[in-house]
């Protein structure tokens, strides 16, 4: 079996599900003839036709509104927004309609809809093409927010997202779109939503992260091991609803926790995780929870990007402080 990248795994999942479910419809800017700006939908229009892969105008509000309307009719639309920073015109449709139809109709209308968007920094792109605003969506009741960190999880989680009966915001960390290759069996096996993935077991400290930051965090964990510190690394994967139980079980074991995220620090997903650990697991802790985070500023242009993004050094320093705390 040949190894594929994360973006190829996205394409493979889309192709698998389209071949097995005629209700799956892809729509968005450039998704058809052009195959998507990052080529995530490459060749799907030629394989499945213009009725299954719909090229739309540059009109995000209409794209998502259309997808919501289609979802109420038994279709399973997968809408692509070219970059997460372009999603804001569609806020109204996501927050006021996609996330609420089910509650407002007491379950008589579902909204089985996936909105895919490349997100996160690290490719020297300008601000809207680099930011991590997942917390804005995690705040909204009625949405699932899912972030894969590897080709395997991109494949399995995207299949699960399409099959799920709720609206799912599927954020693809573009920095690692082509960074790692893995063998990804194309058998249509979904991975569970709403569950964290424990990527590395350890007893000394819990490192909680998601998306592209999983890679820096794993590297730090490996180097810590050389010094005799065994870190447990948790990939949150579904940030809403949050699987706090897995995180708490780990913190109960290790007594120490560092959260690593690209997003701006204030009111972030990291803040929510820290709050829930404090509420439910304060007495497990031997040291304050630390957050290694982006800064509370606009995502900077490329000259300052490396400083903004959590580095291995910053993660390492936070771990060291946490380990050295009485």
């Amino acid at each position: 079996m040949s190894k594929i990248t994360l973006v190829e795994a996205v394409n493979q999942a889309l192709e698998y599900e389209m071949a097995h479910n005629n209700n799956v419809i892809i729509l968005g800017e450039d998704v058809g003839k052009n195959g998507g700006v990052f080529r995530a939908t490459l060749d799907l229009q030629s394989k499945f036709g213009e009725e299954r892969v719909l090229d739309t105008p540059l009109a995000e509000s209409m794209i998502v509104g259309t997808a919501v309307g289609m979802a109420t009719q038994g279709l399973r639309p997968v809408a692509e927004i070219q970059f997460m920073g372009f999603i804001y015109p569609a806020f109204d449709q996501i927050i006021n309609h996609a996330s609420r139809l089910r509650n407002r109709t007491r379950g008589r209308l579902h909204c089985p809809l996936v909105i895919r968007a490349p997100y996160g920094g690290g490719i020297h792109a300008p601000e809207h093409h680099s930011e991590s605003t997942e917390a804005l969506f995690a705040h909204v009741p009625g949405l699932r927010v899912v972030i894969p960190s590897s080709p395997l999880r991109a494949y399995g989680l995207l299949l699960a997202a399409i099959r799920d009966n709720d609206p799912v915001l599927f954020l693809e960390p573009k920095r690692i779109y082509r960074m790692v290759k893995q063998e990804v069996p194309n058998k249509g096996e979904a991975l569970p939503l709403d569950e964290c993935f424990v990527l590395r077991s350890g007893t000394d400290i819990t490192l909680v992260t998601w998306g592209a930051m999983v890679h820096e965090t794993m590297k730090v964990a490996e180097s810590l091991a050389l010094q005799g510190v065994e870190a447990e690394v948790i990939d949150v994967a579904t940030i809403k609803p949050l699987d706090i139980d897995t995180i708490l079980q780990s913190v109960e074991k290790t007594g120490r926790c560092v959260i690593v995220q690209e997003a701006a620090k204030t009111c972030s997903v990291g803040a929510e995780i820290a709050a829930q650990i404090a509420e439910q697991g304060l007495l497990y802790l031997c040291a304050p929870i630390q957050r290694v985070s982006g800064f509370d500023t606009v995502m900077p242009l490329f000259k300052l990007e490396d400083y903004y993004m959590p580095s291995e050094n910053r993660i390492y320093s936070a771990v060291k402080q946490t380990m050295e705390f009485a």
Binding site: G65, M70, Q73, G74, D92
Partner: peptide
């Protein structure tokens, strides 16, 4: 907002 939802209904 319903303009866009109507497009989805009609497309389906």
């Amino acid at each position: 907002a319903p303009f866009a939802l109507a497009i989805g209904l009609a497309k389906a």
